[in-house]
Write a protein that binds this DNA or RNA. Structure first.
Lengths: 108, 108
DNA sequence: TGAACATATGAGCAAATGTTCATATATAGG
DNA sequence: CCTATATATGAACATTTGCTCATATGTTCA
């Protein structure tokens, strides 16, 4: 029987996929900080070590490390060691796409 | 003279556009809450009034109103009155694009 | 091995965020 | 007009967030 109206069909779809939206919000939360978004954008141009990032953001090495940990935990960046430095780079190109997508909205 | 290396060129680009990244982070902040992202996704399907949204999200009418105010202030949604109700809808299609963009990343 | 450099991490704190509760505003219908 | 219904808003509160400070871990090189 087809008693559902349009709204309740939408409600159903969203309620069923509730965890998916939690995940989505979680993803956007990572981009929701200007330091992190700057880091991510910089990494779309070139891999960088912690001190380079710290320098151009003008924030503490500690603060940068904390942010990078968030980015790494959420698998947006990966690391490799080069001597004393740890080089950070993007795991894939989705980050670039997401940033571009937001930029396009801002451009209006 | 061309003494800048690659990193400092990137640094320059990001430092010069610092406000742009603040704006970008601000935009993502709006999507960084599961209630809001659900509301926005629902509105990509159909316009809705406050009580409908409140019902399917299972959160207070007051909480929904507060969230909707955030969405309206940031110009992601617009309103029109229909009798006693206020009908909310998306101002444009960027919201859909941004959500799709995030979903695509989650799908991996 | 020990000193210097690079990065990571835990605790603590201030600011921001999202919800609830109580109440205000606004509209329709009797 | 008065009441019921729909929405908005301010205050209070608990939670989360991002930073700083101090310190730990790890690497290089003399």
């Amino acid at each position: 029987m087809e008693t559902e109206n349009s709204i309740s069909r939408i409600q159903g779809a969203i309620t069923r996929n509730s965890e998916l939206f939690d995940e989505l919000a979680q993803l956007y939360k990572i981009f929701a900080d200007s330091s992190r978004v700057k880091i991510l954008c910089a990494l779309t141009q070139s891999e960088m070590c912690v001190s380079e990032i710290s320098e151009f953001l003008s924030i503490t090495q500690s603060a940068v490390s904390h942010q990078l940990r968030i980015l790494k935990t959420s698998n947006l960046v990966k690391t490799r060691r080069a001597g004393k430095s740890i080089i950070y780079s993007l795991t894939d190109d989705h980050v670039r796409t997401i940033i571009d997508c937001g930029m396009e909205h801002i451009a209006e």
